[in-house]
Amino acid sequence: MTGAEIANANLLIDLSLLTMLVLVAFFMVRSRHLFAIVMLSGIYSLLSAAFFVSLDAVDVAFTEAAVGAGVSTVLMLAAMLLTTRREKPIIAGRSPIALLVAVLVGAALIYATLDMPAFGDAAAPANSYIGAAYVERTAQEIAVPNIVTAVLASYRGFDTLGETMVIFTAGLGVIMLLGAGSARGGRPVSDVGEDEKGGANEKGRA
């Protein structure tokens, strides 16, 4: 295939993926069935992961598939099992002021995107100053074939280490707040004086 044909095919794939994204988002907003919403959010993550691959952002796509479609679907299911199966119907009156604010903010945001450089523009700020320097210097300075990995793990390695420590501390804090029983699947812990704590867990699983 020639370059123009590949570009056309990519455009068609992108358009269909984005159309399906809009459809899924619309049904997620309209649906009152919580399990359907959880499954649709997994499908939404898969769709956006495919779209990221189409944009050549493979690392972002992989994170999106692992976190969005994998882990957070299970976490949403765990949260859903603690509540009802259906969202309560909301009888909302029409409020023209809210619609007006939403339309105005949306229009302002779309107007702001007009100032952004075109996708893949060689003269864009992201591609011209420091980005070009990283592309040139990574090969001899770090010798890692993937430039994104080189930037993440070497050029800003201390920053990444700090981020990892913050997330690890947050996870430790959540586990300590929820208690050891929740980490073992919500079973009450039979230590001294722990019996009254098990009641809430049992209620959640009933």
Partner: peptide, 25 residues
């Protein structure tokens, strides 16, 4: 890798509905 992830997450969802928890006694 996506194929592996997809398999694992379907198993996790079905297991969740069978046992209501991710860790089985």
């Amino acid at each position: 890798l996506y194929a592996l992830l997809n398999f694992a997450s379907t198993i996790a969802i079905l297991k969740f509905f069978r046992y209501r928890t991710l860790s089985i006694s």
